[in-house]
């Protein structure tokens, strides 16, 4: 495999100073928040009722984790910020989520490939954080780890159905892999080899390929996002920004 060409943050871009533990908690909170928002867009549009229910349940799981982590971030930061302060009142440059999760849903194949890549990563994250000295974080990670195992079962089994289903589904899945691959270095970098070998194992069963394309884009963890995040936040934050300071 050729060496990666990683496009990360531009020269001169300031990195916001932040307590590293707070940064870690917010990063994972934002991953789950943005992904929950994306999956929420599928509700009532899914290919069948059972799939609609499954995607909705996964969305709810991610939202639950985001809320728990935002609340904990507020405690870690110690300035009285609430879950909605973090979700609704931060700007696109303050969000620390992976670039992968803010990518549009596309078709069902793109949603599944995105979910699969993320689930492989997320299980590794929770396994690690379940051992954290931060007891609250460890508790969230332990519970979330069980949910992530279920999400992985869902996304990996759909990778098989799409990759090894019909010619059309295989093509769509391959297109999705080609489209999303450049956002995966942010996921594989913290877990060199492990993340990639798990993905390879599932791909081997489906006949899907990973193009030998060296290009990677990163920067999510530094608040340097793709253009999609702005639109996502505009929709998510609109009510709170239109009616500031009110109770719902």
């Amino acid at each position: 495999m050729s060496e990666q060409i990683v496009s990360s943050t531009p020269q001169g871009m300031p990195v916001v100073e932040m307590d590293s533990h707070l940064r870690e908690v917010l990063s994972h909170a934002d991953d789950n928040m943005v992904l929950a928002q994306r999956l929420g867009e599928w509700i009532s549009y899914a290919p069948d009722l059972e799939i609609d229910i499954a995607l909705g349940n996964i969305a709810l799981d991610h939202l639950g984790v985001a809320r728990a982590l935002y609340t904990h971030a507020g405690e870690v930061e110690g300035e009285g910020r609430s879950e909605d302060d973090f979700a609704m009142r931060r700007t696109e440059r303050e969000f620390l989520n992976l670039l992968l999760v803010e990518q549009p849903n596309g078709d069902f194949a793109q949603t599944i490939v995105r979910q699969f890549f993320f689930d492989v990563y997320q299980r590794l994250v929770w396994a690690e954080l379940a051992e954290s000295d931060d007891e609250t974080l460890a508790g969230v990670a332990a519970k979330a780890g069980k949910e992530a195992a279920y999400h992985y079962e869902f996304s990996s089994s759909w990778m098989l159905r799409l990759g090894d289903g019909t010619e059309e589904s295989h093509t769509r899945a391959q297109d999705a892999v080609d489209t999303l691959w450049r956002f995966t270095s942010e996921l594989s970098e913290p877990y060199p080899e492990v993340w990639r070998s798990e993905v390879d194992a599932v791909f081997a069963e489906t006949g899907l390929n990973i193009a030998d394309d060296p290009y990677q884009r990163s920067g999510g963890r530094e608040g340097f996002h793709t253009e999609h995040l702005g639109f996502l936040l505009a929709e998510m934050q609109w009510m709170d920004r239109s009616y500031p300071g009110m109770e719902w």
Binding site: Y45, A46, P47, I51, R161, G165, T166, E168
Partner: peptide, 12 residues
């Protein structure tokens, strides 16, 4: 839009 998805699952 979901027809190809259902077909893929059936085929698999």
């Amino acid at each position: 839009d979901g027809a190809w998805v259902r077909a893929a699952a059936t085929a698999y």
